[in-house]
Design a protein around this nucleic acid. Sequence first.
RNA 1: GCUGGCGUAGCUCAGUCGGAAGAGCAGCCGCCUUGUAAGCGGCAGGUCGAGGGUUCGAUUCCCUCCGCCAGCUCCA
Length: 643
Amino acid sequence: MPLQITYPDGTVVEHPDGSTGLDVASSIGSRLARAAVAVKLDGEMLDLSRPLPGDGLFEVVTDSSDEGRSVLRHSAAHVLAQAVLNLHQGATFAIGPSITDGFYYDFDIGRPFTPDDLGPIEEEMARIIAADQPFIREELSRQEGLAVFAEHRFKTEIIESVEGSEVGDGKIVSIYRNNGFVDLCRGPHVPSTGRLKAVKLLRSAGAYWRGDENQPQLQRIYGTAWESAKALEEHLHRLEEAEKRDHRKLGRELDLFSFPSELGSGLAVWHPNGGMLRKQIEDYSRRIHEMFGFDFVYSPHLAKADVWQTSGHLDFYADLMYPGMEMDGSDEYRVKPMNCPFHVMIYKSAARSYRDLPLRFGELGTVYRYEMSGVVHGLLRARGFTQDDSHTFCTREQMPEELAMHLEFVLMLLRDFGFDEFEADLSTRPEEKWVGELDMWEEATDSLKAALEASGVPYRVAEGEGAFYGPKIDVHVKDAIGRRWQMSTIQMDFTLPDRFELEFITPEDARERPVMIHSAKFGSVERFIGVLIEHYAGAFPMWLAPVQAIVVPVADRHEDHASKVAKSMRDRGIRVDVDAGSGKLGEKIRNAHLRKIPAIMVVGDSDVSNETVGLTVRGSDERRGTPLGEAITELAEAAKPPR
RNA sequence: GCUGGCGUAGCUCAGUCGGAAGAGCAGCCGCCUUGUAAGCGGCAGGUCGAGGGUUCGAUUCCCUCCGCCAGCUCCA
């Protein structure tokens, strides 16, 4: 019986029984066949050399598609394993998947890899690739599989744990052989090792078996593979560019902040430039909170341990909290990891009526969390940081409208900071541990969903990933180089009002519990600034730039005039510096560029006599002889915050 | 927390197989008086992350601590 093969354009073409993916691809075109690394039949990926198992929708997976690269990388991972096993007597191997932009493989060679190990492994891989060994697929029974990998405990464990979703309901395992090397693998693979044109190993690191710190630690080697040397080059170049944006590096270069080791890990100090940047951001936060009807509150940095007991933090969050402080004879105190209990106290400070609700308490609250030492990472993961935190207390009836408002709020804020691509996660009720009433969960989840639908933000539902105390929305942004960052969060809470026995008086003079919405719009101010620095590569829009303009006198005799120009700019609210150094003009211009100051104003003889400046605004050309008043008006306009 | 790699001047980095610590930039002082990305000369700057050990002698070797970097499922 000939196969009825449907092409992506809908045409159906007959192919003889036993035709392979490569046969079909070749019949379509030789270029396509050359670019092919695998095929898909009804969505299932198959090796090129495998006879098509039946009729279906046929697609060619080419080497420069995401799926194709993933096949390349997976095959490269096999070659890596082959090389390591060749080179290291007694080595065993665990898993080696393709990942975004690369691949890795986990090994146990009885010792860690050092950077010096990578070179020889790469050479061995090059040898295997040059030999152009074919990858051959075989299917074995579970028993046979266990026999083949009897000496490799991790492979054995994988076979034993294979679920019904795997090949043949888990009764059959597939393996790939090339030249004596055998790996357990679902496939598909490229036809032969020679198809790997551009492979590079990047680094080694420890990694726990199955990601579990109670399991043995394996040694992982990371690498990357691309369809061509050029694509590999481009990728390495992108890595370099990302490195240039590193907020820790830019933070030092632009003199924004530092992490003095004397203070301890994860604790930042803000220098004047960073302080100005941060002030602009926090001022903006206050303005927009006020706009959306939030009240400002303030709370201390520590509180009695009892309150953390009541809130549940000591039961669920103690690992991340700094240990208690006890003065002789008095109560134990804890530094705050969150602001919620304080805002709850403010709620409780008076008898609340339904007429008071919703109550929205906002605070730039600094919290401290003892993050594991290995995860501390500049501003993006610090141990002391400030949340633009709010807690909204409202009735159940008000909940949908409040949630929609919170989402509108965070989207406006993120857009104002130059992010325009969003993705949201809607995390729903966990299967097992949860509190509150089922219909309340459903109502809240539906409200969050409705708010997301209305906003037009694409979202995915993270089934069961909500906290035990309520569903939530996390908003992610894409930055200038396409990376995804989690920023804002809007979180329902059905447990704190209970734990603290919050009440309000209803129109019927009954007592009822309010519900509570936690929300952090920046997430953490520190982290947000870290992301902003990387997004803008340190070249902030003018309203955020610590120094917005610099006046550069051409020679000493222009310094008085430069000061006057600066003064009149300052009067218009522009943050301006004068470069009164003794250097040449070129040097001062260069320094201004390095400081990423948005506007440069050069003043020389003709400018003094004509009341003009040589104006260069970032992104546009120099304009010699611009009238001073015109320049100032223009810059004052450009320096205005979005709201 | 765990594994590995690191820690030398404010910054970026040389160097010492155990025997007097270096460069560039930045800083300071002079000269130059400058028109859009580095003018020239000089000076100063380091308990070689901290503590302990081995040694005649430690920045170098060993141990502990502090700090930094990468990674620690994107599941054959």
